[in-house]
């Protein structure tokens, strides 16, 4: 789901398009929701279920607004730090020098946006898709166990989501009904959540006032809308033959791409897809 090849030039042109279409920010019809608090979670995860020693780390950022939440990997926000101040050149030069770090989590989730729904925007290859699910899809069971994480008194809750059993520890001391990824709906902030096999572990490490970002809003740009089930079909199909799928979408845009060393490119694309056999959501609920 991530861009596999080291094609800076191509990425550049893709982002120029993004930047010029997004730079007309603030034009959403829906009133943007001001961010009240930002929460940061470390996520520790095992992307390859055949190699449990292969452990990676990233950070998730959760925006909490008056009415809605937004959650995504911190790395995926970095381009917006440039876009929001219209610094195209700064972005391009950072991009060209490889300073925009990639993320393994190519999705942004908007909770209660639109009302009662979760909107997810996720990339496959270079194409952006949107799917929406009702908020009721996450059902919690409260357990009596409680303990302390840091200085927070937390209580246990269970849910089933994306083909995994999840254990959450939430605190009523922070009465936001939010959490990392698209976890939400407990009567307090989620401090830690992990699946029962510890393939994905999110841990709160910081809470701060908003900085760099002011509002929660879904960037207003053309994208394909699918059902979540359809999206998962696409995702699995992409991983079958990532090289062919990626080339198909590049060529559908009228662009073309040739490789000096096609064997290495395809070998690494297959290898990367093979190593990413354990996504956070194994299936669409």
């Amino acid at each position: 789901m991530v861009f596999f090849y080291n094609l800076r030039v191509l990425l550049l042109s893709a982002f120029v398009v993004t930047i010029t279409t997004i730079n007309s920010f603030g034009q959403n019809h829906r009133k943007p929701d001001p961010i009240e608090v930002m929460c940061f979670y470390n996520v520790t995860y095992r992307p390859d279920s055949t190699d449990m020693d292969y452990v990676l780390h990233e950070e998730f950022t959760l925006f909490i607004g008056a009415d809605t939440y937004q959650s995504q990997s911190s790395n995926s926000l970095i381009p917006f730090l440039y876009i929001n101040v219209n610094d195209l050149d700064g972005f391009l030069s950072a991009m060209a020098q490889g300073k925009i770090p990639p993320t393994r989590f190519n999705s942004t989730h908007y909770i209660n946006n639109p009302k009662g729904k979760i909107t997810s925007i996720e990339n496959i290859g270079m194409t952006e898709y949107k799917y929406t699910v009702p908020m009721e899809s996450l059902q919690w069971i409260i357990k009596p166990e409680n303990k302390k994480i840091g200085n927070f008194a937390v209580q246990k809750a269970l849910t089933t989501f994306g083909g995994r059993e999840w254990v959450a520890w939430f605190t009523t001391e922070i009465p936001y009904s939010a959490g990392p990824y698209l976890f939400h709906g407990l009567p307090g902030l989620i401090v830690k959540i992990s699946d029962t096999r510890d393939h994905y572990i999110f841990e709160l490490h910081n809470i701060s006032n908003p900085e760099g970002f002011e509002f929660i809003e879904i960037p207003d740009k053309p994208r394909t809308t699918l059902s979540k089930a359809e999206f998962f079909v696409l995702r699995d199909r992409f991983n079958q033959n990532p090289h062919a799928s990626l080339m198909q979408s590049i060529e559908a845009e009228g662009a073309s791409l040739t490789f000096d060393d096609p064997a290495t490119a395809q070998r690494s694309a297959n290898e990367v897809a093979r190593r990413r056999n354990n996504p956070i959501e194994l299936k669409a609920d």
Partner: peptide
Amino acid sequence: DLSEFVVRASPIVQR
């Protein structure tokens, strides 16, 4: 007051 939370969140990272 938000700072109330921030102080009480025991940060793993020393910033």
